[in-house]
Design a protein around this nucleic acid. Structure first.
Length: 694
DNA sequence: AGTCGAGTTCTTTTT
DNA sequence: GAACTCGACT
């Protein structure tokens, strides 16, 4: 077999059952290194698979191999970090073996954790219909809690805002340290503040439990707690899964490693990863987990897969060069071996500023496309979203088709959250945050008024034993609503009531449909200039809901899937350039890659240089970026950055200076820079075309 | 007292 | 561009 790069699309309906398939020829389909890992005997295994070495392929074949050995799909647990990776894995397994992906338990740590807690969450005090909070929700909840506990806290300017405090609490929980210790590291000078933060963290935790809420961290923390404290649950999972496979193991934090160890205690754990690609320490990923895996699991077999099927030898040489500057002590030595034909050297291009950078990149893409490349073959990568601002402007000016992965996530847009909040509140009436979200949309209704009204309704709920949605619509309660909002209020409550009535029996799709066409439709049309577009977004929520049978499950998925749907609204068949942060490009590959903003202060970013961040991690990030490229790689940086009016001079990234100069070619930005003036022939951009001069 | 609008500041990375 | 602050208005 020669096709290691990518899977072929399976165009033929649903695959036949396993036994009708031709047997998989593992030996022929895999190289020697992959084959050894795939056919590993039982017992702990650590697979170190370098970038582009066929990691997903190895994992997929491992699952197929297990099935061929008689392991049942239900006994396999597959854990990944992103939804995209999970889906890709399961799809490929299905293609290869014909075993439906629904038969495996697989997904992100967070989503599997959510499922476990739906079953066993009560043993840690979590109600069955708990709601999962996304990032923004949990920030505002903490904000609310702090205000309640200490109304004057935010008056003092030196005190941190809710968001950084939340970040700190979250980090502490992910690495399993006391909140106070982390706080001490970040605000060393203020002893009194530390105790405060600790008490906020406690109150925040209690509030979530009271209201039946769980944030992302809870999904992991409680999951581990369940496994540790609930014999029955632990036994169930330990006996059910004979094989636990973990992808991207270099990015697990100690909680996740603990969960994996516990579940796999009686059976096989296969951890697959690449320590050179650990880029999530800032959210608790602990590189020691992969480094010390063999010590924690006596008898571990280590497999190294080093043949790279993705990149040209020139690109690999540059990437390997980045690793040479690493600290030897804390890494597994690994050198990617090329297998692809030679191509041109990576190109380094200094530009005047971000506009010239954008201009050069797009000009270059233009010639690539002229030479036969498709837009989807090209990716532009950067350290932080705002580095690509000028590029986005330039792209829309020229009318080029492009997608941005994330930035503004679909499910985090205001109108989507407004709508979902209504459903959330009905599904879990203790979810005050959800209520506040939509109630405050009414004129003259703010936080205080909304809280007062909800309080009244709640009292009535207890006294008369009615549902909240009924109580909120009672006439004497309506009388207390500010006059300007009264009409809306009645509409809104009617909608809530009908959602409530449907929620018990109807499908999630029906519920969402009801919500869209209720009060919110009027509100949307009255509020937003671009309401038709937003309405389309909401309609697509109905499709999404159609894939789920249970309302709670749908709401969970909605929260957990937020990132995957970043690149939506791509009409099928339309070919688009891809703009992405390096973090989000992990696991992807493109024939042509441009990395922009390679200047000290941008990448590595300022914080890392000042010692607040981790320079090693920035370097690994650069490694991840370069190893996305298959045949061409361009590295660019602006020498002038125009931040808030004051121009700042930038120099090339220290990561570039570390590299031997022979690993890349220096180009001049003017060489592909087309003149701005006059009627030059700017052909070749198909639909959209060139949209006038600046 | 509470809501609303105008103006200001600062942007890492994500489940 | 969003998240926050501040001052005016109900």
């Amino acid at each position: 077999m020669y096709d290691y790069e990518d899977e072929e699309e399976d165009m033929f309906g649903s695959p036949p059952p396993v036994r009708d398939r031709p047997e998989i020829d593992f030996k022929a389909d895999l190289n020697e290194e992959q084959f050894r890992a795939v056919t590993a005997p039982d017992g702990p295994a650590l697979v170190l698979a370098g970038a582009g070495s066929g990691k997903t392929r190895t994992l997929t074949y491992r699952v197929a191999y297990l099935l061929s050995q008689g392991v049942s799909p239900e006994a396999i647990l597959l854990l990944t970090f992103t939804n995209k990776a999970a889906k890709q894995m399961l799809d490929r397994v299905e293609q290869l073996t014909g075993v439906g992906s629904h038969r495996f338990l697989g997904g992100t740590f967070h989503s599997v954790g959510g499922q476990v807690l739906r079953l066993f969450g009560d043993s840690v005090g979590l109600v069955r219909n708990f709601t999962i909070l996304d990032d923004g929700d949990s920030d505002s909840l903490l904000n609310e809690v702090i205000r309640g506990l200490d109304p004057s806290f935010f008056k003092t300017k030196e005190n941190p805002k809710a968001k950084p405090i939340k970040g700190l609490i979250s980090f502490a929980r992910n690495i399993g340290s006391p909140v106070e210790d982390i706080a001490k590291g970040r605000y060393p000078a203020n002893g009194e503040l530390l105790a405060r933060i600790d008490s906020f963290a406690r109150a925040y935790q209690e509030t979530k439990i009271e209201r039946g809420l769980a944030d992302y961290d809870d999904l992991l923390v409680y999951w581990l707690e369940v496994l540790q404290n609930n014999e029955e649950a632990a036994r169930y999972y330990q006996e059910r899964f004979s094989h636990v496979l973990v992808d991207e193991y270099q990015d697990v934090n100690s909680l996740q490693a603990g969960i994996v160890d516990k579940i796999g205690a009686k059976h096989q754990i296969m951890a697959v990863g690449d320590d050179a690609q650990c880029i999530y320490t800032w959210r608790g990923a602990d590189i020691d987990q992969i480094m010390e895996f063999p010590q924690r699991h006596p008898g571990t077999t280590v497999f190294k897969i080093e043949t790279n099927y993705r990149s040209s030898p020139e690109i690999l040489k540059l990437a390997n060069g980045i690793l040479d500057s690493r600290d030897e002590e804390s890494s597994y030595s690994k050198v990617l071996k090329p297998s692809r034909p030679h191509a041109s050297l990576p190109v380094l291009v200094p530009t005047l500023d971000a506009y010239q950078q954008a201009d050069f990149v797009l000009g270059k893409i233009e010639s690539l496309v002229d030479a036969g490349a498709r837009y989807e073959d090209v990716a532009i990568l950067y350290r932080a979203h705002y580095h690509a601002m000028e590029l986005q402007v330039e792209l829309s000016r020229r009318g080029l088709p492009f997608v941005i992965t994330s930035g503004l996530r679909f499910f985090e847009q205001a109108h989507v959250k407004d709508l979902v909040a209504q459903i959330r509140f009905v599904a879990n009436p203790k979810d005050v945050t959800a209520f506040m979200r939509f109630a405050c949309l009414l004129p003259k209704v703010g936080e205080k008024t909304a809280a007062k009204l909800l309080g009244l309704a709640e009292r009535r709920t207890k006294e008369k034993g009615m549902r909240v949605t009924e109580a909120l619509a009672e006439s004497d309660l309506v009388a207390k609503v500010p006059a300007d909002a009264r009409e809306d209020w009645v509409d809104l409550m009617e909608t809530l009531r009908s959602i409530d009535l449907l929620a018990g029996s109807a499908t999630p799709a029906k519920v969402v449909d009801e919500a869209i066409h209720g009060w919110y439709q009027n509100h949307l049309r009255a509020t937003y200039e671009n309401w038709p577009r937003r309405e389309e977004d909401l309609e697509s929520l109905v499709d999404f809901a159609g894939k789920h049978e249970n309302l709670h499950e749908m709401l969970s998925q909605l929260v957990l899937l937020s990132s995957e749907s970043g690149d939506r609204v791509v009409r099928p068949g339309e070919s688009c350039l891809r703009l992405s942060t390096i973090h989000q490009s992990k696991g992807l590959e493109f024939p042509h890659v441009f990395i922009i903003g390679l200047a000290d202060g941008l990448f590595p970013n300022k914080r890392a240089i000042d010692g607040e961040g981790d320079l090693e991690e920035e370097r690994r990030l650069f490694y991840v970026a370069t190893t996305r490229a298959e045949s061409s790689l361009h590295l660019l940086f602006p020498t002038l950055s125009n931040q808030k009016g004051t121009p700042v001079r930038l120099v090339q990234s220290r990561f570039l200076k570390e590299l031997p100069e022979a690993r890349y070619e220096l180009h001049n930005a003017h060489s592909s820079h087309r003149p701005r003036q006059g009627g030059w022939n700017r052909r070749g951009f198909g639909r959209g075309g060139y949209r006038g001069y600046r």
